[in-house]
Each structure stands twice: as C-alpha cells, then as structure tokens.
C-alpha cells in the first residue's frame, strides 16, 4: 500500500524527482531519483557501487570524491540530478580488463593506505591530477591532494604512490586512463 502511494507520487510531475541519464564507469544508466538524492547516495544505494565512501558528509574530507566529466568533485555535495547527461567515474571504474589502474598499482606497491577509508577518493583525485599534470612535483602532489584527508598514513606513502603511478604511466603512454 505504501509502495503504491510512492509510485503514484513519483509518476506525478512534482519537481521533487527526476529521471536522469548518466554514464557510470562506462555503463549508460537511466534512473528515477528524488531531487535531494546526493550523487554519493545514488552511487552507493541505487547502483550498489559502494567503493565510494561517505566520510564527513559535509564537503571537508574528500572520501567521496568521484570524477564528473573528468573533474574531481565531492559526491556528497553534488546532487544526483546534477549529473544528468554526465559521465561519472568512481573507483570501480579504474580497473580495466582485470588490470589495475597505475594509480591503484602505485597505492598497492608503495603501501599508500592503512585503513583504506580515504583511498577511493584519494585515488580518484590522483587520477585527475595525473591526467592534468603527468609529471607533478612533490609540492604539486601535496597541494593537489589537499582536499582529501587521510588520518592514517601521514601522506608520505600516498605521495610515493602517486609518484610511482606517474612513472608507470610515463613509461607506458599508450592505453592510459
């Protein structure tokens, strides 16, 4: 009964919900979402892509960072309806054909994580950072990831992981992200 009520309501053009078309990690999706649904909730709860984490929930920590049309955004501060027509890339979209992305390899090899909570966001920021600047200095890396908080590593190994990824991507320029 309650379900019927919800369905009747969502069929009405009430501006409180909307059908969106989003390409998520290369897969085109059509979804009906409430306007207030945050992109992070859409990814986690509607699409069951739980790799994107919710940390502070107020735009400070960067754990929920995903790429929208290639730009890192905090998906807890971004409405799902705003992604209509966009390409969204989350951590699940980094691996291709069973092969880890160089940034994932870097975090693995250099031990760029401890608890791993910040890691998905940290890696998405790193992917965008390296796309814009393939050979960053340590200072540029540190500034680049300053919107992503890590409470475990002290950042030293995260910086190393990104440097390692930069090297690997420079060595294999074909088939990059």
């Amino acid at each position: 009964m309650a379900i019927d009520a919800v369905e009747v309501q969502s069929a009405m053009p009430n501006h409180r919900s909307k059908t969106i078309h989003v390409t998520v990690n290369g897969v085109p999706r059509e979804s009906h979402v409430e306007a207030r649904t945050l992109l992070v909730s859409y990814l986690r709860e509607h699409l069951k892509l739980t790799g994107t984490h919710i940390g502070c929930d107020t735009g400070h920590c960067g754990a929920c960072t995903v790429l929208v049309d290639g730009t890192p955004v905090k998906s807890c501060m971004f409405l799902a309806v705003q992604s209509d027509g966009s390409e969204v890339r989350s951590v699940e979209g980094l691996e291709t054909g069973g092969k880890l992305h160089p940034v994932q390899e870097g975090f693995h090899k250099e031990h760029g994580l401890q608890c791993g909570y910040c890691t998905p966001g940290m890696m998405m920021t790193s992917v965008a950072l390296l796309a814009a600047n393939p050979n960053p200095t340590e200072d540029e890396i540190r500034r680049g990831i300053s919107g992503n908080l890590c409470r475990c590593t002290g950042y030293v190994n995260i910086v190393k992981a990104i440097q390692s990824a930069a090297k690997e991507m420079a060595a294999a320029p074909k088939g990059g992200p």
Binding site: G59, G62, T65, T71, P72, K74, T125, G144, G147, N148
Partner: peptide, 9 residues
Amino acid sequence: IADPIVRNR
C-alpha cells in the same frame, strides 16, 4: 578558497 576539489564546483 576551501580546497582544490571544492574549488572545482
């Protein structure tokens, strides 16, 4: 202003 990711939006 804020941090680099916030500045993207």
